[in-house]
C-alpha cells in the first residue's frame, strides 16, 4: 500500500466530517421522528462502509485463495476488522432509532437478525485469525467468501419480508434537503473506511516485513 495514501485519504475524510455537522444541522426536521431522524445520517453510511469492507474482504479472500497473493490476505484482515467496527456502529445507532420509532430497543425481524448474523460471522473470522494458528489464513479466506455471500440476503431482506425496518428504496427517493447531507456523510464514511484500510494494510505489511527480517537473521 502506498505510503502517501493514508495522509491524503484521512485529510479528505476530515474535510467531509468537518462539513457534515453543518449540513446535518441545516437539514429540515423530519415530522414524525424529529431530532432522532438525524441518526440516519450516521446509521446508513456506517452500514454502507461495512458492506464496502465486506466486499473488499470477500474479493481479496477469493484472490488469496486462488492466486496465493499474500498482499490480498493482508487486505482481507484489514477489511474484516473495519467491517466489524462499522457494523458495530450500525448496531449501536440502530436501536437508538428503534426506541423512538418502535418503542423498543430491538425487534427480531429479518433485517435486524441478518445484520447481527453478519456481524457474528465477521467476529468469528477475527477469532479464527487470532486463535487458528498456522495455516488459518486459507481457512479464513474461505470464511471471508461465505461472509460476502450473506450480504445480498441482508440487503434484500426488507424487500422479501414485511419488516419494521424502513425499506431499501427509501434512500434513492429522499427529498433533496435530506439527501444532500446523507450522500455527503456517505462519501465521508467511505473515504474514512478507505483511509483506515490503507493504514491497517501498511501495519500488516510492516509486520510481514519484520517477520521476513527475523527469518533472515535466524538463517545467518
Amino acid at each position: 500500500m502506498h505510503r502517501r495514501l493514508f495522509p491524503v485519504l484521512s485529510g479528505l475524510s476530515l474535510c467531509f466530517f468537518l462539513v457534515a455537522p453543518v449540513l446535518i444541522v441545516g437539514a429540515p426536521y423530519e415530522s414524525t421522528m424529529g431530532l432522532v431522524q438525524k441518526i440516519f445520517y450516521f446509521h446508513f453510511p456506517a452500514w454502507m462502509a461495512m458492506f464496502l469492507a465486506i466486499f473488499i474482504l470477500g474479493i481479496s479472500s477469493g484472490v488469496y485463495l486462488f492466486r496465493r497473493k499474500p498482499a490480498a490476505d493482508r487486505l482481507a484482515v484489514a477489511a474484516a476488522e473495519l467491517a466489524v467496527v462499522f457494523g458495530l456502529m450500525g448496531l449501536i445507532t440502530g436501536p437508538l432509532w428503534g426506541i423512538k420509532a418502535w418503542g423498543v430497543w430491538w425487534q427480531w425481524d429479518a433485517r435486524l437478525t441478518m445484520a447481527v448474523v453478519l456481524e457474528l460471522i465477521l467476529v468469528a473470522y477475527l477469532l479464527l485469525r487470532q486463535y487458528g494458528g498456522a495455516g488459518s489464513d486459507r481457512l479464513a479466506a474461505g470464511l471471508g467468501l461465505f461472509a460476502m455471500a450473506n450480504v445480498p440476503f441482508l440487503y434484500i431482506s426488507t424487500e422479501i419480508w414485511r419488516t419494521v425496518h424502513p425499506r431499501t428504496s427509501v434512500v434513492p427517493t429522499l427529498p433533496v434537503d435530506f439527501g444532500v447531507p446523507l450522500w455527503w456523510s456517505l462519501v465521508g464514511f467511505i473515504v474514512l473506511c478507505l483511509a483506515l484500510l490503507s493504514l491497517r494494510c501498511r501495519l500488516e505489511e510492516q509486520r510481514a516485513m519484520l517477520d521476513q527480517l527475523y527469518l533472515a537473521v535466524e538463517e545467518e
Partner: peptide, 23 residues
C-alpha cells in the same frame, strides 16, 4: 475439513459454523 489441521479445532468449529448457518 478446513479445521482438521488446526490446533483449536474443537472450539473453532462451532464458533465458525453457527453464525454462518443461523439463516
Amino acid at each position: 475439513a478446513m479445521l482438521v489441521r488446526t490446533r483449536s479445532r474443537t472450539v473453532l468449529l462451532p464458533v465458525l459454523l453457527y453464525p454462518v448457518t443461523i439463516p
